[in-house]
């Protein structure tokens, strides 16, 4: 499967989508100028991945900041992984937040309430 590696900037996150090495990761800051253009390739990759997922999928979010427009895109991504989970595959979301960033912890908790996948919260 194709590997997607997007290097982050001050307004777009680092994205790694690598099925072979089992790395799925979003990190950094997310306030892209055009949300749909930025996140569509990732969504399409996950749809493709869902056809033949790894037995265990780890999804890592290590975001410093995201705007409300991105929050909707992140939910769309999580819902794609929920589909994979509902097909009987193992999926774990690892949500990282800076130790003093309560809002980021809370954002992760909110996603875990909306989406039916196991979440692990990690401070750093």
């Amino acid at each position: 499967m194709e590997v997607i590696k997007i290097k982050g900037t001050d307004d777009t996150p680092n994205v790694i989508l690598d099925a072979e090495n089992n790395i799925i990761e979003f990190s950094g800051r997310s306030l892209p100028e055009d949300i749909i253009t930025f996140y569509t390739p990732a969504i399409q990759w996950i749809e493709e991945y869902a056809k033949n997922p790894n037995p265990k999928t780890n999804v890592i979010f290590r975001l410093e900041y995201f705007n409300t427009a991105s929050s909707k895109a992140l939910l769309d991504i999580l819902l794609k992984f929920e589909d994979i989970f509902n097909e009987g595959n193992e999926v774990l979301v690892q949500w990282y937040y800076q130790e003093d960033d309560e809002d980021m912890l809370e954002a992760g908790e909110e996603y875990s309430e909306i989406v039916d996948i196991p979440f692990e919260m990690h401070s750093y």
Binding site: I35, I36, Y39, A69, S71, K72, A73, L75, D76, E110, E113, I114
Partner: peptide, 12 residues
């Protein structure tokens, strides 16, 4: 309300 709008709204 935030959670509800996030679920129901669309990015576009």
């Amino acid at each position: 309300l935030f959670k509800k709008q996030m679920r129901e709204g669309s990015v576009s």
